[in-house]
């Protein structure tokens, strides 16, 4: 499509006055970009705007055919969402899940990158193996986790009861809470939530690993060697020389992982279905949509999710990101 416009535009304009190089570049640029832009606008931007409209309308799946752009606008969906039981708890769960999974995946990724920094025989193979959780289809890996963690025939519980001496198998994915006795204290532990956080950490540490690994290759050894001569120990060299150089990439990773985990649906839906204290907002949106057929309330809830995320990222970029940029200098 762009080809036609670009070609036909050129001879027509040459007849009048030849366009400057800049004008021609401008036209070709827009022409080349337009197919991409049309698809993104039609299937991404318009739906986002439409969700905003839907969230202010009372729409259910039954009357979806009759509803138009100029329906009756109401704030009822937002009242429904904010007063529905479990909304605030679900928001808290989403935040705990996101922060936990982001921290865990970046920490493991950092440890992996540092451990693989110096070459050794078979490093390429180990590196390849470590990317497996990230590239494998989520449905397949979540199913394997489900079977591995199964209280009846899962390898983890078999190992736990036979070797580690657990009293009883743990229902990792369906138990909301368990108490752990530690130094005479009874601590409540959200079992299922911790399990899905562990799953996220496992599945996405390769992402952090790849980024940090790439950055590590660009770090010059000179400063480290100089600090070694100055008598800095290994941990000091890491803390004062290496870590500051890695901080920008870690900050970038934190934002990226935070955004992607906050919006995550598949992993929790497949592992627990949102039960046992893992009902993050995206799974709630899905439930509103498919079991209540309440499109209006589902849209309102999805919108609230997006707004919270945009505010969070905005606050981060406004107050914390400049420090990360200084680190790059």
């Amino acid at each position: 499509m762009s080809a036609v416009t670009a070609r036909s535009a050129a001879p027509a304009s040459e007849r009048r006055r030849p366009l400057t190089l800049k004008q021609r570049e401008n036209r070709t640029g827009l022409g080349f970009l337009s197919p991409t832009l049309i698809v993104v606008l039609a299937v991404v931007v318009v739906p986002i705007l439409w969700t905003i409209l839907l969230s202010f309308q009372e729409i259910r799946l039954i009357n979806v055919r009759s509803a138009g752009v100029f329906g009756n606008y109401t704030l009822e969906n937002f009242t429904t969402v904010f007063t529905s039981p479990g909304f605030w708890g679900s928001l808290l769960t989403t935040i705990v899940y996101t922060v936990g999974a982001t921290t865990l995946s970046i920490s493991i990724g950092l440890a992996a990158a540092l451990a693989l920094r110096a070459p050794f025989r078979g490093r390429a193979l180990v590196r390849g193996a470590m990317l497996l959780p990230y590239i494998a289809p989520v449905v397949a890996v979540s199913f394997v986790w489900e079977v591995m963690l199964s209280p009846q025939f899962g390898i983890v519980n078999t190992f736990g009861t036979n070797v580690l001496g657990w009293d009883a198998p743990i229902a990792f994915l369906s138990q909301r809470e368990s108490t752990v006795h530690l130094f005479g204290l009874e601590l409540p532990v959200p079992v299922a939530l911790l399990t899905v956080i562990a799953f996220e950490g496992w599945r996405y540490f390769p992402f952090a690993f790849l980024f940090i690994m790439a950055r590590l290759q660009g770090v010059s050894r000179d400063v480290e060697e100089a600090s070694l001569v100055d008598g800095a120990t290994l941990t000091q060299r890491f803390r004062h020389v290496l870590l500051p150089q890695l901080m920008p990439v870690i900050a970038l990773l934190s934002v990226l992982r935070f955004i992607l985990t906050f919006n995550k649906f598949d992993d929790i839906y497949l592992l627990t279905g949102g039960g046992a204290g893992t009902d993050v907002i995206s799974v709630r949106v899905y439930d509103f949509l498919t079991s209540r057929f309440d499109i209006g309330a589902a849209s309102a809830q999805a919108l609230i999710l997006a707004v919270f995320l945009i505010i969070g990222v905005g606050v981060y970029l406004r107050f914390f990101a400049p420090k990360a940029e200084e680190g790059t200098l």
Binding site: T28, G29, F32, I48, L54, I295, L305, A306
Partner: peptide
């Protein structure tokens, strides 16, 4: 290519990822 609105386009394409796919899923 240097054309009018190039930076904005680049930003638009990145901003897409701020929105959860479940949000897109409803209107679609």
């Amino acid at each position: 290519l240097r054309f009018f609105g190039r930076k904005q386009m680049h930003f638009l394409f990145l901003a897409v990822y701020l929105f959860p796919s479940i949000l897109l899923a409803i209107p679609l």
